[in-house]
Simulated assay, not measured.
Amino acid sequence: MAELQDEFDTPAEAGELGGRPTTATDARRVPGAPRPEPAAGREDAFGRARALLDAHPVADGHSGLLRALRAMPYCDLESGDGGVETDVPRLRAGGVGALFWSLHVPDDRDGDRAVAAALEQLDLVRHVAARYADDLRLVRDASETADARNRGRIAVVVGPASARALGDSLGALRSLHALGLNVLTLAGTPWAGEDGLSTFGEQVVREVNRLGILADLTGAPEATARRVLGLSKAPVVFTRSGARALREHPENLGDGLLAAVGAAKGLCLVPLAAEQTGTRVRDVVDHLEHVRNVAGPECVGLAGTYDTSAAHPEELGDVSRFPRLVAELLDRGWADAEIAALTWGNVQRALRGADFTARASR
């Protein structure tokens, strides 16, 4: 690990975020209605998109950058030519203000080996954030995320990580949180299966609430998802789930579960992954609109899924392409306030909810 870390270069100075949103429109697209023609041309839509992202940057709910960096020890995140889909210039161009860094725990690791894999990546994320401190800042809650954005840094939220990294130990969970873990994926464990949560699984949910960790239910069986939605006192997230009504995929959510997410004020982060949401920008927007209409406008967000094994829709090939997506939303008639909630506000709400729950439990 030391040899890997020593290869990272020190970053150069980066510019600050700025700007203000434009005047909001109240137009909303009715499901099934024809798409309106762009009112002022594509260039105007891109200009408005960039202005919106200056004021309300993207909180990207899933990045596989850490896994990519482990395989590319010479990657320079400042130069913009490191062979990854996520680097500092692209993050700036894409209007990204916060990034959830996934900790990959290989499927063949369990017990102590799974814990070790998570610890290695926690060490790496801290090292990378320190090396690129002019651009990146590790954060623990909504207030630190907002402060990083206001200071021109990109906030790094650590997680999601597979709950297999706990080794079935609440002590390991507390230790991982002390080292920076903020999002935990419950799926893939024997205590969060097809029959719902075991007694230990319920203890994990209560403990993540107490610590202020967001519970991620991506890929969880429906019985487990519904039990966690009912048990958790903090908002629950799905860090990469589209709408199953539009595209069949095991990690996408059916309308019944989306409605339950809305009732619990959870958060569904729609992935920019072709397998889950389609091969075109308009397909991604279809999923965003479906989740918004079923769960509610405060319950939908974005997950880039960059630097994972996922292929991406055309025109959304790397993290710099979020303005293209926002331009499509404007063409569809999304109001500025709805886009601001989608890109930034809804993730902030979930982080605030986790922090409030943790403070209330102490």
Rank of each mutant, 00 (worst) to 15 (best):
L197D: 09
G193V: 11
A215Q: 02
G193H: 02
L170W: 15
D195I: 00
E194H: 11
W191R: 00
L176T: 05
V183Q: 04
N209L: 12
D216E: 09
L179R: 06
L197I: 07
L181Y: 05
Q203N: 10
V205A: 02
W191Y: 14
L176Q: 06
L170Y: 14
F200Q: 01
E207W: 13
R206W: 14
S169R: 07
S175Y: 13
S175E: 15
L179W: 11
D195P: 10
S175H: 13
S198P: 11
I213F: 09
D216V: 01
V208G: 00
G193L: 08
V183C: 08
A187I: 10
L214Y: 08
G171L: 11
N182C: 15
L173A: 02
R206T: 14
R206M: 05
G188D: 10
N209S: 09
G212C: 14
A187E: 13
G171F: 11
G193T: 07
Q203H: 15
R210N: 07
L197C: 05
L181Q: 03
N209T: 12
A172N: 15
L176W: 05
H177L: 09
G171S: 13
H177D: 07
G171A: 13
I213N: 03
S169F: 08
G180V: 13
L181T: 10
R206D: 15
P190A: 07
L173F: 13
S169Y: 09
V183M: 08
V204T: 00
L179H: 05
H177F: 10
A178C: 07
A187V: 11
T199F: 13
A187R: 08
T185M: 08
T189V: 12
L170C: 01
G180F: 09
G171N: 14
F200L: 04
L184F: 08
L176S: 01
R174M: 09
V204W: 08
G212R: 03
V183W: 06
V208R: 00
D216N: 08
L186W: 03
R174W: 15
W191K: 00
G201Y: 05
G201P: 06
A192I: 13
G193K: 00
A172R: 07
D195K: 01
N182S: 15
G196F: 04
A178G: 14
L176A: 04
E194D: 15
G188L: 09
A215T: 05
N182R: 15
G171K: 14
G193Q: 05
